[in-house]
Write a protein that binds this DNA or RNA. Structure first.
Length: 556
DNA sequence: GAGTTTGAAACT
DNA sequence: CAGTTTCAAACTC
């Protein structure tokens, strides 16, 4: 369930505006919108029509994208451009081709919500021109509908059937209306220009099954959102179904290509639980007090998401554990505003208003976690070997038991890798791994099911638990571990456990630090790329995409 | 449906 | 040009 549609009857389905968008200047305008609407006809004397006429009269071949973005051209109507236009005609904002912006088409179920089934082609057409069937009526009270606050006025139409009060956006007040238009144009000659430069839309891969359509375009002026994450219709970019661009000055933007939050919105839910685990780690590493998009979810959705996350771990637990690790390693403390953008101990400044923030999920992939788990198992085994080697006083039987324990751990790793190879990797395994890494082996003892088999051998405490509980399922399922349980040399194992835990935590901490570094580098590169288009920096991004686990392993 | 939040527009 | 206020839509309850 999307946040915005939870209670609002006008909320868009699947992120698409389904009605005339508010407070906008023909964001979604296409040639299809040039058709006069029944209720609100674009007036030929309107500056927008005049602008269009003048542009056409200039007869300069414009790029197709610009033509597409020119809305509401009234053919045949040519009126003298306003004084403001003549004096201050600024060159149009060049249309820059942007990365594909994928948006989900409505499902058949959603389409059928309105009662009438629609053919895919019809849906496609509706999405492409985004033309609402009925213009929304304004509700202006104080602006007399003579300011850009008024949607009707801004779009160059008379108010007709609106709920506004003291409306002057009518033919009866034409003089005042023209005056208002002139004043606005004096202030901003582009005030009535379309805000979105949009290029044609096409399917991303041309396949029939593909329910992603690509919208290319950007807000000419850009948005300045601060709190909405650019994922609500407060944001003009989001409202127009375009990605935020370099024109924007938004804070904590999530309306960019690859944004998991945005992806979540358009897909009405996580494609897999792994995303939320990543977000949990991301939040923990960043020290933020929230999931970025998570906190925008409605309560019911939050609970659902919380359940997903908390099955094996929790954000707070992850944060607490990472904070503990940081303190143990004399690392800079996490703060509520810590960001991977900055140095670990740096506070973000107002200058750090990065628009496009790559999420951890872009860097951390399941294979990395797999390798991390393997690394931790190996490190743990090596620790056990190391300690056992030092124990000259141990008798042969004890050594055999230690070796049995080690081989058990390694076997556990092999088993889980067999699972991975069989594509059986699932979230609970990841969560189990995280639970171990972040909660020092406390995992999900209550359920006893979330920790991955790979981490079970590492959970030294569980061995003791199994010792005291003969009916423990895990203990019963692993006779080798039972062998360890019966060892009289518990001190040796305690030492091994301590060493294992120390090394595992140390490596896990290193892994997290590598992730932070990767995120910083990638983000910096992302910013540089978006601003300068320096493709040469792709190498940095690629390097950043390299496996942090391997980097950690090298550093061991 | 009332109240709150949000960000663009308008104003200083 | 930056900060503040106004405004109406979006959103929440």
């Amino acid at each position: 369930m999307e946040p915005m549609e939870a209670s609002s009857p006008t909320a868009p389905k699947n992120g698409f505006p389904v009605k005339r968008l508010a407070r906008q200047l023909d964001f979604t305008a296409t040639p299809a919108m040039c058709r006069p609407l029944a209720a609100n006809v674009i007036l030929p004397e309107h500056p927008q029509a005049q602008l269009q006429s003048k542009l056409l009269a200039l007869a300069k071949p414009a790029p197709p994208a610009i033509l597409v973005s020119q809305p509401q051209v009234v053919s045949g109507e040519k009126s003298p451009p306003s004084r403001a236009m003549q004096q201050r005609r600024k060159p149009k904002v060049p249309v820059v081709m942007r990365l594909a912006h994928t948006v989900r088409r409505p499902t058949s179920q959603e389409v059928n919500k309105c009662g009438s089934p629609k053919l895919p082609d019809q849906r496609s057409i509706e999405l492409r021109d985004a033309t609402p069937k009925k213009k929304k009526q304004c509700n202006c009270k104080n602006s007399r509908c003579l300011k850009l606050y008024c949607e009707c006025f801004a779009s160059g139409t008379y108010c007709n059937g609106c709920n506004c009060t003291k409306c002057h956006n009518t033919s009866e007040h034409e003089a005042q209306r023209k005056e208002a238009i002139e004043i606005i144009l004096e202030r901003n000659p582009d005030a009535f220009q379309p805000k979105i430069a949009k290029s044609p839309i096409g399917t991303t891969d041309g396949s029939v099954e593909a329910y992603d359509v690509t919208i290319m375009g950007k807000h000419n002026k850009g948005c300045n959102c601060k709190k909405s994450g650019c994922l609500k219709k407060y944001c003009e970019c989001f409202q127009a179904s375009v990605l935020c661009s370099e024109n924007c000055n938004c804070i904590d933007c999530k309306n960019f290509e690859g944004s998991k939050e945005r992806d979540y919105m358009f897909h009405e839910g996580p494609t897999n639980d792994f995303r939320f685990v990543n977000q949990a780690i991301n939040a923990a590493i960043c020290g933020t007090s929230k999931f970025s998009y998570f906190n925008t979810l409605p309560a019911t959705k939050k609970r659902k998401t919380e359940q997903l996350i908390c099955r094996a771990t929790s954000v707070d637990a992850v944060k607490d554990r990472i904070e503990q690790i940081r303190q143990e390693n004399d690392l800079a403390p996490t703060t509520a505003s810590f960001s991977p953008l900055s140095a670990p101990s740096a506070q973000p400044t107002t200058a750090m208003k990065f628009t496009h923030r790559p999420l951890l999920a872009e860097i951390l992939q399941s294979k990395h976690l797999k390798e991390l788990c393997s690394l931790l198992v190996v490190v743990s085994a090596e620790a056990a070997k190391k300690i056992s080697g030092k124990k000259h006083v141990m008798n042969k039987g004890d050594i055999e038991e230690v070796e049995t324990s080690i081989s058990s751990a390694i076997q556990g790793s092999k088993d889980v890798h067999a699972q991975y190879r069989n594509e059986s990797f699932n979230t609970s395994q990841v969560e189990g791994n995280l639970a171990y890494g972040c909660q020092s082996g406390e995992g999900d003892r209550e359920t006893g099911s979330s920790a991955s088999p790979e981490t079970l051998p590492l959970m030294s405490n569980d061995r003791d638990v199994a010792t005291e509980g003969a009916d423990s399922p895990s203990g019963a399922s692993n006779p080798k571990r039972n062998t360890t349980i019966k060892s009289p040399n518990r001190e040796v194992f305690k030492e091994i456990d301590a060493e294992q835990e120390r090394l595992v935590l140390k490596n896990f901490c290193g892994f997290l630090n590598k992730l932070i570094t990767c995120t910083i580098i990638r983000e910096t590169s992302h910013l540089s790329l978006s601003r300068n288009g320096l493709e040469s920096q792709l190498g940095v991004v690629q390097n950043c995409n390299s496996n942090p686990t391997i980097q950690t392993r090298k550093s061991v």
